[in-house]
Amino acid sequence: MADQLTEEQIAEFKEAFSLFDKDGDGTITTKELGTVMRSLGQNPTEAELQDMINEVDADGNGTIDFPEFLTMMARKMKDTDSEEEIREAFRVFDKDGNGYISAAELRHVMTNLGEKLTDEEVDEMIREADIDGDGQVNYEEFVQMMTAK
């Protein structure tokens, strides 16, 4: 299944994987998964984290390695993001709930994920998604960005 991913997608997933893999040992533990999910405003229980890991832990060693992570991402993409997942993601970014993602809100979430971005990089990300040019990202623009192939 992971063989249907483009090189660009694999590179993006590698970057995402390293955000989860806090200690850089090449595997994601339940603790690391929990840290990232909490930084995104989720509050999973230990059991939920274990279930999430077990779902993709092909070799049964209790952690997720990069090939397992790729399989999980490929699977998720095949079920292409349901509207509800996209709306949920939008809410994570839209901290003040005004229906727009500002540069400050984007920077806040990315920083929580451990991504240190310059102001230019954040502005560039907003510009790429900002179709109507108002300097922020509304829900429609967010959907376009998330579903762009």
Rank of each mutant, 00 (worst) to 15 (best):
E84L: 08
F17V: 09
K149V: 04
F142I: 02
K78T: 09
E121K: 08
D65Y: 13
Q144S: 14
R87N: 08
A11N: 13
M145T: 11
R127K: 09
S39T: 10
D79W: 14
G133Q: 11
L113F: 11
E84A: 15
T80N: 03
L19I: 05
L33R: 04
F142K: 08
E46W: 08
A58I: 02
S82H: 14
F69V: 08
M146R: 02
I101N: 01
H108V: 12
A89P: 00
A148S: 06
K116Y: 04
E48I: 08
M37L: 10
A58N: 03
R107I: 02
E120P: 15
E120V: 11
T6M: 14
G133T: 07
E32H: 15
G34V: 05
R38H: 02
Q144D: 05
N43G: 06
G133I: 01
K95D: 02
V122A: 12
K22C: 12
D94R: 01
L49Y: 15
E84G: 12
K95Q: 13
K78F: 00
I126N: 08
R127A: 01
D119Y: 11
V56N: 03
A11L: 08
N43T: 15
S39I: 12
K116S: 07
T45I: 08
K31S: 06
E48D: 14
I53E: 01
V122T: 15
V36R: 01
D94I: 04
A2Y: 05
Y100W: 02
Q144T: 06
R107M: 15
Q42T: 04
D134R: 04
F90V: 01
Y139I: 03
E105V: 13
K14W: 08
R127V: 06
I86N: 08
Q4T: 04
V36N: 00
V36K: 00
T30K: 02
E55C: 04
V56R: 04
A74M: 06
T27N: 13
L70Q: 02
E84N: 11
T118M: 09
E7P: 02
V56I: 05
V137C: 13
G60D: 14
M72Q: 15
K95P: 01
F20E: 04
S82G: 13
F66T: 02
K78Y: 10
L113Q: 02
E124W: 09
F66K: 07
T35Q: 10
E15P: 02
E46N: 01
G135Q: 03
E84S: 01
F13L: 11
L5K: 10
R107D: 03
D119K: 09
T71R: 09
Q144Y: 08
A74E: 02
E85F: 02
I28R: 13
N112I: 10
D132A: 09
L106K: 03
F90M: 05
D96K: 15
Q136G: 01
D94S: 00
K76R: 12
L106V: 02
Q50W: 07
L70D: 02
G99Q: 03
T35Y: 02
M77G: 09
G26I: 15
I126W: 06
E105A: 14
F17I: 10
L19F: 03
F13T: 00
V122M: 14
F142Y: 11
S18A: 11
M145Q: 13
E12P: 04
M77L: 12
A47C: 05
E115R: 00
T118Y: 13
D96C: 15
G60S: 13
L49H: 15
P44E: 05
N61T: 03
E85Q: 05
V36T: 15
L33A: 14
K116R: 12
D21Q: 08
D119H: 08
L5S: 14
E105T: 15
D51E: 09
T30A: 13
T63R: 10
M110R: 02
E124G: 11
Q9E: 08
L106I: 14
A89V: 09
E141Y: 02
E32D: 13
K14C: 01
D96I: 02
E141S: 06
T27V: 07
D96W: 06
L49D: 04
A103F: 02
K31Y: 09
G24R: 10
D134H: 01
M37T: 11
A74P: 08
D57F: 06
A148T: 13
T29K: 13
V56K: 15
V36S: 07
D130S: 09
T63L: 06
K116T: 13
R38K: 11
K14E: 12
T27P: 09
G62C: 11
E7H: 03
D119Q: 02
K76A: 14
F93R: 04
I131E: 00
D123V: 07
L113K: 04
L113T: 00
E140G: 11
D134P: 09
K149A: 10
L106F: 08
D3F: 00
E7A: 06
N43S: 14
N112S: 13
T35L: 05
F17W: 02
D65N: 14
Q9Y: 13
D59S: 08
F66A: 14
D79T: 02
D96Y: 04
F13K: 00
G99K: 15
K76W: 14
L33V: 07
D123E: 08
D59Y: 08
T80M: 12
G24L: 05
A16V: 11
F17S: 07
K116P: 14
D130V: 11
D81T: 08
F90C: 05
L40R: 07
L70H: 01
H108L: 12
S18H: 04
D51A: 10
V92T: 14
S82F: 03
E115Q: 07
D119I: 02
V137Y: 04
E55W: 13
S82R: 12
T35E: 06
V56F: 03
Q136N: 08
D79A: 13
V137D: 04
M37N: 15
G26A: 13
A148W: 14
M73V: 13
G26S: 10
A47F: 03
A103V: 08
K78E: 12
M52K: 07
D59A: 13
E115F: 01
R38I: 01
G41S: 10
A148I: 06
N98R: 10
A129G: 11
R38D: 00
S18G: 02
A74D: 08
T35R: 09
R91L: 10
D65M: 09
M145A: 12
T63P: 12
E85H: 04
E12W: 07
D119N: 11
T80Y: 04
T27Q: 03
L106Q: 04
A89R: 00
R107P: 02
E46F: 03
V36A: 11
L5T: 14
I64K: 01
G99M: 05
D81R: 12
G97N: 09
F69R: 01
M110S: 04
A103S: 10
I101K: 00
E68K: 12
K22Y: 06
S18V: 08
T45Y: 02
R75C: 02
I86Y: 06
Y139N: 13
A104E: 01
M37F: 00
Q42P: 08
K95V: 04
E48H: 04
S102T: 06
T111K: 05
M110Q: 04
E120Y: 13
F69P: 04
T71D: 01
E85S: 00
K76V: 08
D57L: 02
D21L: 11
N54D: 12
D51Q: 08
K31A: 07
M125L: 13
R87V: 15
L49F: 11
Y139G: 00
E121C: 00
V143G: 07
G97T: 10
E15G: 11
A47N: 05
I10D: 03
G135F: 01
A2D: 14
T29E: 05
F20D: 06
T80P: 12
S18F: 12
A16K: 02
V92S: 05
Q9D: 06
N61I: 09
F17N: 02
E84F: 08
F66L: 13
N43E: 04
A16E: 02
D81H: 00
G97Q: 01
E48L: 08
T80S: 10
S18E: 04
P44V: 14
D21P: 15
T30V: 03
M146G: 14
F20P: 04
L33M: 03
D94Y: 07
A16F: 06
D3G: 11
Q9W: 15
R127F: 05
D130G: 09
I64N: 10
E55F: 02
V92G: 09
T35V: 02
T71M: 15
S102W: 15
V109H: 12
D81S: 00
D123R: 10
A58W: 01
E128Y: 02
R87H: 10
N112F: 02
E124I: 09
D57P: 01
P67Y: 00
K76Y: 15
T29D: 03
D119E: 14
L49G: 13
F90Y: 11
I53F: 11
T118A: 12
D57Y: 10
K149I: 08
D130K: 01
Q136C: 02
R127Q: 07
E128V: 14
E7N: 01
A16G: 11
V56A: 11
P67G: 03
A103W: 01
L113E: 03
E105H: 15
A47W: 09
E46D: 09
D96A: 00
T63F: 06
K22Q: 12
I101D: 12
P67V: 10
G60V: 04
D25S: 09
K76D: 07
L33S: 09
K14H: 02
S18I: 02
I53W: 05
D134E: 13
G26V: 10
E84C: 05
L5Y: 00
Q42N: 04
M110A: 12
A16Y: 09
E120R: 01
T63H: 03
N98F: 10
E68L: 00
R127C: 01
